[in-house]
Amino acid sequence: MLEIVDLEVKYGAIAALQGISLSVKPGQIVTMIGANGAGKSTLLRAVSGLVGITSGKILFDNANITNLPAHRIVGRGISHAPEGRMIFANLTVKENLEMGAYLRDDKDGIASDLERVFSLFPRLKERIHQSGGTLSGGEQQMLAVGRALMARPRMLLLDEPSLGIGPILVKAIFSTIVEINRELGMTILIVEQNAHQALKIAHYGYVVETGKIILQGPCVEIARNELVRKAYLSES
């Protein structure tokens, strides 16, 4: 479904991604784990058009989407919930979600998707008329994921959904991600520092270090890997 070939991204002279190739099959949850600054977020941003690509190719459903502007890529069916819970602080929860459906004009579909997001995240329904800025970190994260779903994408990109929120909420969000994948058949590419959780829910995984993929395979295998266990799962 998503095919990335030899992707390179540079910020000025610094190479954030140095020739990354990966693929995501329909219906899969694929995760990319790695430390801070490994290039995980950059990869998602490159896919959704938020950063420019130095070289390489990105194919989505066999169509070349390399260097399309971000708002056009959303139209193709890729929805990105960016890192740091970039919600709209001055719009209400409902307005935030409705803005997620900015490119759609099927009123009934939007209304039913809104209900679906509320059933996935009942907490958001309780806060429906509150400004996004008044939500807690975890709630903002739910809102960011919910907003991305409102575009009715065929593929969801999640950037560090566990960042800065408490362990109980992390579990809840991850189980919702699984639910989204199973019930909606959504293809998901998720990047995480919380390797433990990510490897638990994903089907296939990639490990990145300083802009390069150093390991890949089914998640059960990755979780067994000596190096991964030492470096990312803090087991000895």
Partner: peptide
């Protein structure tokens, strides 16, 4: 509302298709 969205967070606005 897209105006407010862009003011609040340009990257997030781009990421939902604005």
């Amino acid at each position: 509302k897209a105006f407010t969205a862009v003011r609040d967070d340009e990257i997030a606005a781009e990421s939902i298709g604005i």
